[in-house]
Design a protein around this nucleic acid. Structure first.
Length: 272
DNA sequence: GCCCTTTCCTGGAAGC
DNA sequence: TGCTTCCAGGAAAGGG
């Protein structure tokens, strides 16, 4: 599932794919519900003739800055961009150099937003964890105000953006914090450890070009069809029944925030 | 207003 | 073997 490192990798590849300055000459919507707020006809009509002037990442969104609009895409679980027609194609953009930019999404959770004002989509998002805005002071302040379980807190994009199920489990393991602890109950030591662990696991993910889980129907491929390499770097995620790399205790899988959650029961203690 | 649960989706895996 | 049920999860919506 594309989280911050996977989306960042895709944005970097899109930027090296020579599409900046290209025009969208045709848009075809094959699954109408992929388009948020607009009908497929309105979407196709508005985007036709728009020039792609820049491509950026905000949270887990891909932000295509067009001449008059922002095309903002969330890949959710299985969304991917490829330069050829695909099995689960939901939107097809034809560029004026003849290339197809195909949006493939097996489980149809992904969304396209086309708006002149990106704040319509980005308005409620929290702090970018790899930016200068992410300070220990700001992080502590957010934690202290929330009674959410820390895993739910990390997954909630209104506080910190870009962290999903994989990187939440990894960051919590790194910081010796149990996923069911309340955010406001974390000690200063745990807060500092988690503050450092979040950018660390995300940077490692980017360095290895994302996490690709599964084989035939893997959930993440880059725009060039490459698998990521970060799945070999994970310490707890989808490693239940394996020994903890730190202490050797068997990693367990449980539920937190209604999500499969992996942890070391010795390193990460629920009650303090 | 906060927090938790349900919903959207497909297809592989598990269960019978 | 073949059918049915379960499970995976990001984020919006709904309910307590």
């Amino acid at each position: 599932m594309p989280e911050l490192p996977e989306v960042e990798t895709i944005v970097r590849e899109l930027n090296s794919a020579d599409i900046i300055g290209k025009k969208i000459s045709l848009a075809e919507v094959l699954w109408p519900r992929t388009i948020a707020s607009l009908t497929p006809t309105q979407f196709a009509s508005k985007i036709k003739g728009q020039t792609i002037t820049a491509i950026k990442r905000r949270a887990k969104f891909i932000h295509f800055i067009l001449s008059d609009y922002s095309l903002i895409v969330h890949l959710r679980m299985t969304g991917k961009f490829l330069f050829h027609p695909t099995t689960h194609e939901r939107v097809r953009l034809t560029l004026n150099d003849g290339r197809l930019l195909s949006y493939d999404d097996q489980r149809k959770f992904g969304k396209f937003y086309l708006t002149p004002n990106p704040e319509d989509v980005f308005g409620k998002l929290g702090i970018e964890p790899l930016s200068e805005d992410f300070t220990l002071k700001a992080f502590s302040s957010l934690l202290q105000k929330s009674r959410l379980q820390i895993k739910a807190f990390l997954l909630n994009q209104q506080f910190i953006v870009g962290v999903g199920n994989i990187y939440a489990d990894e960051a919590l393991w790194n910081a010796f914090v149990h996923p069911l602890r309340r955010a406001c109950d974390l000690t200063p030591k745990e807060t500092a450890a988690l503050f450092h662990a979040i950018p660390q696991v995300l940077q490692k993910g980017i360095q290895h070009q994302g996490t690709t889980l599964g084989n035939l129907h893997a959930n993440y491929f880059s725009i060039n069809g490459n698998r990521g390499g970060n799945q070999y770097q994970l310490n707890v995620f989808r490693r239940e029944k394996e020994p903890c790399p730190r202490c050797g205790t068997t990693i367990i899988k449980t539920k937190a925030a209604s999500r499969g959650t992996h942890l070391c029961p010795k390193c990460q203690v629920e009650g303090l």
